[in-house]
Nucleic acid binder design. Structure first.
Length: 657
RNA sequence: GGGCCCGUAGCUCAGCCAGGAUAGAGCGCCGGCCUGCGGAGCCGGAGGUCCCGGGUUCAAAUCCCGGCGGGCCCGCCA
């Protein structure tokens, strides 16, 4: 693969390798990665393109003659590299001026031969990796938070695959547990399961769930208030105001479907003990003692997933394996975990329930370090089962983790799960280690992401307060359509709509992976669809421009007629070549560090430079054949990188928009 | 009460783990230019106590300690 050659001569690799080799020959021991990462882009006015603060590595060298000798040797070695024009020592830095003509030759050859694979440097240590993502509970429709999850998960999977890993994607269907039982209870209260045809099924189920959940909460809270009335005081007033708020939620829910609401309200209020009815459904499903409940639950979940899959398909997201939580229980995998726990030295009884004492594991320094445990915080004991024998989410998650590792013979499992589940995810890893599943415990990665907020909107699935992802997609497409109608009024209607869909979807995905996962993200539709800057449409547009310049030329790129000296004639051409040479490096870094946002920042910058370049340095009208060949190759290179990045980010590639 | 994450220009964000030159982009704002390979154009400018206070270091946005502000978590929920 020619991409490897580009990777090797990319400035951080080249300079890092050279510096490290010389330092090592002088018995200066430094981490090659630290050296490589000290290489940074510098302003041209510093006399080069990339620089490295060399003095920080020469601290231990006391003799200044010796220092000079080392610096000079590094400079000489760098100068002997074909892609280096000059290297100088300035104010503690070694600055490298690149020979962009030689660099261009290497980059163009790679683009020419690797094409759609250009930039996808293969790892030297391929692994088997499971990426679990989306995994929304099948009780309400997907919303913007799930969209961040699926965009990150799908992008990571594509990124790791392109890097040469074997990747499997999985979705965990949480069909056991209380939430599901609440929805099933609601459906049962309606008498028969007959969802309306004119509403998307997951949206309707979400409404039933929200109404049922809130009604049950209100009844429970009312009893509580009743009980506290005599006593009065702070607690009573708090519960009372909580009840007020819930009543307001109920009123809003009723507006959405009065008939459905009234039917549920009447049925539930005539149930003497809804909490017990829900618990009973949960038991019947988990212990599989009531085939009717099993069938109904499965049918509801299947229906809800149909809705999810439709939304995911629109987002361009595909998951390979769908795992049912209930299958883990029924296949006795969860029972086995419980059994193993009982035999483990960490087993304990906590508040009368079987549990694992995880705090004692914290004392092991290896575990504390590898799992990055908080120091002055005692991990609470993990309760494994309810007193009625039903299992708990975390216990089932332990079994599921083992399943994921086993079935794919995975080296690593990446769970894309909200940051609010940090403690739970930590407990899973600790529990695995406690039960002797060390490989699993140490190689389970919680890829945590923070919440997505939409200005002026608070969200709660239990209360039915959310903007669904479907609505968001529609809004994005509608907004995109307005722009497309403005720009391309002559295109046929159906084509404009197709373009608008590709633009809308791309815009949502781009903005959801553009911010580092551990930061809270504010989603702004207008910004996501800003056609002018830092957005998927902007990248799609830039691609289309590059593509159409090449289409206008109409012939194959004359690779063999390129005059490489053209590279040095224009600053923007130089910058583009250097940026193009950085693509494999950025790609590898994004994959290895699980940071898709690096790719987003990179591609945005490349588009900026390209958009600045082509209007002022005409490609097709270039009279000199060799120079025109160079410009065509450069355009092809940019087009290729844009396309190869969009493919990873799941942004549809369009030839016109 | 404890733990985790975040805090950088008016706004949205890079940079922080792996300390180094004058802290970067984009939006917005101000002032100019422009008839284009698809105007979704170009050039210039202003704008910063890198949340605060200590410490380590030749050197701190970056590391350590102590605060402040925001979010999340600490359930026989998921």
């Amino acid at each position: 693969m020619h991409t490897e050659k580009v990777y090797d001569v990319s400035p951080p690799k080249l300079i890092g390798r050279t510096v490290h080799a010389v330092l090592t020959s002088y018995n200066i021991d430094v981490d090659p990665l630290v050296v490589e990462r000290s290489v940074s882009e510098i302003p041209r006015s510093y006399g080069g393109d990339y620089g490295i603060p060399i003095m920080r590595f020469l601290r231990q060298v006391k003799d200044s003659q010796e220092k000079n000798k080392i610096v000079n040797e590094i400079i000489e070695r760098l100068k002997s590299e074909p892609t280096v024009r000059n290297a100088v020592f300035v104010r503690g830095y070694i600055n490298v001026d690149l020979d962009v003509s030689s660099l261009a030759k290497i980059v163009f050859e790679a683009v020419r031969h690797d094409g759609k694979e250009y930039g996808y440097v293969k790892t030297s240590r391929p692994q088997r990796i499971v990426v679990e993502h989306t995994s929304a509970n099948p009780v309400h429709p997907l919303h913007i938070g799930h969209a961040r999850n699926m965009s990150l998960g799908d992008t990571l999977a594509k990124l790791l695959r392109a890097r040469g890993h074997k990747v499997q994607t999985r979705y965990y269907i949480n069909d056991a547990g209380r939430q599901m039982a609440v929805l099933v209870y609601g459906i049962k209260m309606l008498g028969s399961y007959s969802p309306p045809k004119n509403v998307k099924i997951d949206h309707w189920l979400g409404l039933v769930y929200a109404i049922t959940h809130t009604l049950v909460d209100v009844l429970t809270l009312k009893k509580e208030v009743e009980r506290l009335r005599e006593k009065g005081g702070e607690e009573y007033r708090e519960k009372l105001s909580e009840l007020d708020k819930l009543m307001a939620v109920l009123a809003r829910l009723r507006e959405r479907d009065p008939a459905l609401f009234d039917k549920l309200a009447q049925a539930i209020s005539s149930d003497p003990n809804p909490e017990e009815s829900i618990a009973e459904i949960m038991r019947k499903y988990e212990f599989r003692t009531d085939e009717e409940i099993v069938k109904l639950t499965r049918r509801i979940v299947e229906d809800c997933l149909k809705g999810f899959k439709e939304t995911m398909r629109r987002m361009g997201v595909d998951v390979e394996v769908w795992d049912w939580e209930s299958d883990l229980i029924w296949s006795s995998m969860v029972a086995k975990i419980l059994e193993e726990a009982r035999k483990s030295p960490y087993f304990t009884i906590h508040k009368g329930a079987p549990a694992l004492n995880l705090a004692s594991l914290q004392e092991d320094p290896e575990i504390a370090e590898k799992l990055e445990l908080p120091k002055s915080f005692k991990i609470p004991s993990l309760i494994l089962a309810r007193s009625d024998g039903t299992t708990l989410y975390t216990t089932r998650d332990i079994a599921y983790t083992i399943k994921k590792f086993r079935e794919f013979k995975a080296d690593k499992v990446i769970n894309v799960i909200a940051a609010e589940q940090r403690l739970e995810q930590l407990q899973v890893r600790l529990a695995l280690i406690a039960l002797g599943y060390k490989h699993e415990g140490f190689n389970l990665i919680h890829y945590a992401y923070e919440m997505v907020s939409i200005p002026g909107m608070s969200m709660s699935g239990r209360r039915g307060e959310y903007i669904t992802l479907d609505e968001l997609i529609e809004a994005a497409i509608k907004r995109a359509r307005e722009e497309v109608d403005k720009r391309q009024p002559d295109l046929p209607e159906d084509e404009r709509q197709k373009i608008a869909e590709a633009v809308g979807i791309g815009a949502v995905r781009y903005s959801l992976v553009s911010v580092a996962a551990q930061k809270p993200l504010t989603f702004n539709l207008e910004e996501a669809l800003n056609f002018e800057r830092n957005s998927a449409p902007y990248i799609q547009y830039t691609y289309a421009r590059a593509h159409n310049i090449l289409a206008k030329y109409g012939k194959p790129i004359p690779w063999d007629q390129i005059d490489y000296s053209a590279a040095e004639e224009n600053e923007l051409r130089r910058t583009l070549v250097i940026q193009a040479s950085m693509f494999p490096y950025i790609f590898a870094k994004a994959a290895d560090e699980l940071k898709p946002e690096l790719l987003v920042a990179y591609i945005n910058r490349l588009a900026d430079v390209f958009n600045k370049w082509y209007p002022q340095d005409h490609v097709i009208r270039e009279p000199d054949e060799g120079k025109r060949a160079f410009k065509l190759a450069l355009t092809k290179t940019v087009e290729t990188i844009l396309e190869n990045t969009m493919r990873i980010l799941g942004i549809p590639v369009l030839e016109r928009l």
